[in-house]
Design a protein around this nucleic acid. Structure first.
Lengths: 340, 340
DNA sequence: CTGTTAGCGCATTCAG
DNA sequence: CTGAATGCGCTAACAG
């Protein structure tokens, strides 16, 4: 060894050995530290001879460049942050997949975190990512105020929201065409001759819920059908509520003959509701499922493309990083009706 | 401003402003830099008065500590790396969810990446994570040699493999009870009176495939039933192959009356195979699905718990980080038979 | 309770 | 083509 042992405070974790640095490599190869840096970063202007000497030393010492130190010097981390509500949820993990795809092509790694739809937690995670100096941030926002990010955005940190727009902040957003998708799905039922179509979905304070309800109303209006609030059921996606909703929709003098469910959880709850299973309601749902084609009654759906949403959001981050100026952009991604 | 403008090389990304540092805060608050550090890190031995002054300066400057610089100094990043094959795949995103849960409790963030089951890519991603000095590494390994990680493991980096063990390296692993699960599932069919049970699964060079096939054979042997290779179909999970497999299983003088599918993709392909749909084969599958209870024929499954797998793997990482010594451990997580 | 000094590992001047 | 010095922002040591 050329250098005296470091280890001022031995880390608690077992026998972690201090890693070799460029200085160690330089010493072993008999060159200057900058030359090692050149080799490591693949810069030119290094003679083949010295390059090989350096590479030999790197291999021998098992040197691996400390990316954190480089970031400190260079001012960029080649990392972007992604905050979702729950990475275990299919739509969001596919958003992550899309983001990752673009990020990887840009030589960038992904720091991911789940907010659990908790305001404090989302804020803390966001600040933690900023503290780590991510080059950009993609957020599937909880329905809380995001004004605390204004300073960062103004300071030039690219922040893109996905799936739903932020409250209290003008920023780039990538959305599915929730309204258009719901309109198309409802229209599909109308074209099949239905005139009384129930709607089961999220409360209106959920962005996607409100948009999809609007799309449903659009379709009714376009067809000259009346909007009947008695056929609309908004709330928690549990079986009991959906069961009650279906029961009500089927009651009265002019019962529903069809049903549009506004999101995956409400769809699942409805599919499991006894009153629905007993009924012969026509059914279209927002969001696709793996086995939707194999159900007792194959399910027609309005599908979105979460991976494309992630890709689009990531692309926007890198565009901003690349110098794209201008006001906040909103990208709306199409949905697809899959008739089954 | 107290300091002269930095910005030796203006970053390309738009008007990124240089961020305030502890020095700026210290100057504004009229204290030493170390005092700022104390306040930021919540250390004690700071008078209420100066603390408030510092906090005022922090708020005014919108200072956010650079975690990268701190890591460089402290030798730990409070980050762990997770490499899966595809984060968009339900099992793996749930592993990620579990890992995240434990990591969050430990104040640690997650750097995630998908290998796409590509050897070079997985290796490159792994090295990239090591380069970023993650405190630990969790890998859902591709079926390639992981000997290149031996040095890192020896140097004290906690590396835990999940879902499948690594090749060419002795390391901590967390697995589902593939063999036991397949045995239980097959046994369930035997108890229902079936004597001719077909098996459709992955090739034997896929670890989980081999384990599950062994579990299937265990169950047959336990029941004194002969193992008939003519009833076992291993290969790619496409509909054509599964259709042919079912057709063959149903042919001959002693046709199958039941079927065990060894993983989710083969299950899906089989469910969609015409010959299967025409048949009245009893069916048990490894891996659960969201809508499995709502199929035309409700599907009995052997379910694993990927989130628990992620939690377990992360816990192992933190145990090692906490000083746990000893040889590589293997944790086997139970599976659950869900009869439908 | 508070401040000063040094240096984590690297890349970036700017000389040789 | 190569190397020595400087500092990125922070915290560990060690004074006061």
């Amino acid at each position: 060894m050329t250098r005296e042992p470091k280890t001022p405070t031995a880390p608690p974790g077992a026998g972690r050995v201090s890693r070799p640095t460029m200085r160690d490599v330089a010493a072993l190869a008999g060159v200057g530290i900058k030359t090692v840096s050149r080799v490591v970063n693949g810069e030119r202007h290094v003679s083949e001879e010295t390059r090989q000497a350096v590479e030999r030393a790197i291999a021998q010492l098992r040197f691996r460049r400390n990316a954190g130190a480089a970031s400190l010097r260079q001012g960029q981390t080649s990392t972007i942050g992604l905050i979702v509500e729950d990475i275990g949820e299919p739509i969001q993990s596919n958003i992550a997949r899309g983001v990752e795809r673009i990020a990887h092509d840009a030589g960038t790694l992904l720091l991911t975190a789940s907010s659990s739809d908790d305001e404090e937690r989302e804020r803390a995670l966001t600040l933690s990512l900023i503290s780590r100096r991510v080059d950009g941030l993609i957020i599937v926002p909880s329905p809380f105020d995001h004004g605390f990010l204004r300073d960062e955005a103004d300071a030039g940190l690219p922040i893109v929201f996905a799936d739903r727009p932020p409250v209290g902040l003008a920023a780039d957003v990538v959305l599915a065409d929730n309204r258009g998708g719901a309109r198309t799905g409802t229209q599909h039922l109308i074209e099949d001759g239905h005139r009384r179509i129930a709607f089961i979905g999220d409360p209106e304070d959920v962005y996607t819920g409100a948009e999809r309800l609007t799309g449903y109303r659009d379709a009714l209006a376009n067809a000259g059908l009346p909007y009947d609030p008695g056929l609309v059921f908004l709330g928690a996606p549990d079986i009991a509520r959906c069961d009650a909703a279906v029961t009500k929709a089927l009651a009265g003098t002019w019962p529903a003959t069809a049903l549009f469910t506004g999101n995956s959880l409400n769809t699942l709850a409805t599919l499991r509701a006894p009153s629905f299973q007993r009924s012969d309601l026509a059914h279209v749902a927002f969001d696709d499922f793996e086995l939707a084609d194999l159900l007792r009654r194959p399910l027609t759906v309005v599908a979105q493309d979460p991976a494309a949403m992630g890709e689009s959001a990531a692309q926007l981050v890198f565009d901003r990083l690349g110098g794209l100026e201008g006001p906040a952009r909103t990208v709306v991604l199409p949905t697809t009706l899959i008739a089954r």
